[in-house]
Every structure is written in C-alpha cells, then in structure tokens.
Amino acid sequence: MDYLLQGFMQGFVLLFNGDAETYSAIWATVYASSLSMACSLLIGVPLGFLLGYTTFPGKGAVRTTVDTLLSFPTVVIGLVVYALLTRNGPLGGTGLLFTIPGVAVGQTLLGLPIIVALTANAVEGLDKRLPMTLITLGASRRQILWATVTEARFSIILAAMAAYGRIVSEIGISMMVGGNIKWHTRTITTAIALETGKGEFAMGVALGMVLLAVALAVNVAAAGMKKKAVQ
C-alpha cells in the first residue's frame, strides 16, 4: 500500500514542480489524442449520420461490421498501422512511423467505430416526428439535416467522450506506432508501462494519476459543452 500513497504524493510533486519528462508525456498524450479525436469526429459524425439516417441495401451488414470494430484490439490496430507506415509499407513514404501524427492515425482507427456506431444509434433513436416537424416549419433539406444532427448533439457529445476514454487509455498503438521514444512519442500510458517494467511502481501510479487528471479535465470540458448545448 505504501507505494500507492507514495505514488499519489509523487504525482502531485511531478505536476506542481513542472517535471519536464512528465509534461513531455502529457503533451504527447494530449497532442495525439486531440488530433485523433478531431479526425474521428470529422469523419465519424457524417458517416454515423448517414448510417443512421439513410436506408440502403446491406445496411445491416455495415452495422454489424462497425459494431464488431468497437472491440478491435489496440495491438492489432497498432500492427496494421505499423505495417502500413513502415518504410517498406504502402504508406512508408509519408514518414509518419514513430511520430505523434502516426500514433494519431492509429488512434483515429480506434475512435472511428465508436463515433460512427454511437452517432448512428443516436440518429436512429431520434423522435420519428422530427422530420415532419422540420418540414412543416419550412426547413429546406439541408436545414433538416443540420437540425437532425443538432437534435442528436447530446448523444454525439457522449460518443466523443466514450471515444476519448478509449483513445487516451490505449497503449498498443502508442507503443507500436509511436515507439515510446523519450521526449518525442512517449505518452503517459507507454511511460507507465516502462516505469512499471523498471519496478518504479510509484512513478507508474503517479503517471496514472496524471492520466486520470487529463481525463477528468476533458470530461469537465465535455460537461460544460453539454450544458452550453442545452442552453
């Protein structure tokens, strides 16, 4: 139990003393997760909307595929992205391997199914009277689409929070695609794995607390957005 308490104390020390290595890992984590969340939302919300709003042959199969991808292991995503980005891979020329944007590519693949599936669910779950209401109020087709997304905004915020939770806590992609390079691609989760491997439990606990604090900050911001969305 001592190392837990020690880790708790050390966490505060690392944060409040501005420890450079800790803040480098925090920056890498926030940078990669922000980039991947932006990509996941930009691609995932329109795709999820289309999936939930429209009907087409094979829709059931697409839904099943997206739902299956929800439980895609992060190491497998890491492996696939590594294979694509490695020098001999089809995207080797991009130079993204062992970079934060490279990690973000993998994390986008992780977050995308969550955003798509939950957005589709949200749109499918909207009140059936909504389209008729919007038409009778004189909305154009474009305005109807936008209002439908707006009506699903609370569920989309929840989808974003769920995706962020999975992205910020993953390790497989960061380790395989990022390479856990100190001062460069070392994220909080890869740093925790490294410190624990070295037997530095207290340091691992401290970094875990930092990760929780980052997640808390994001969730507080999301709750603020939700409150603003209600108003």
Binding site: D127, R129, L130, T136, G138, E151, F154, V230
Partner: peptide, 14 residues
C-alpha cells in the same frame, strides 16, 4: 413555407 401543420402531440426541438 406557406402551409404548416400543428399535430395533436407536437414535437418540440431540444
């Protein structure tokens, strides 16, 4: 834009 309908249980936007 010229004809509008009020139903028995209207839906209000959130």
């Amino acid at each position: 834009r010229d004809v509008t309908l009020l139903v028995q249980e209207p839906y209000l936007l959130k």
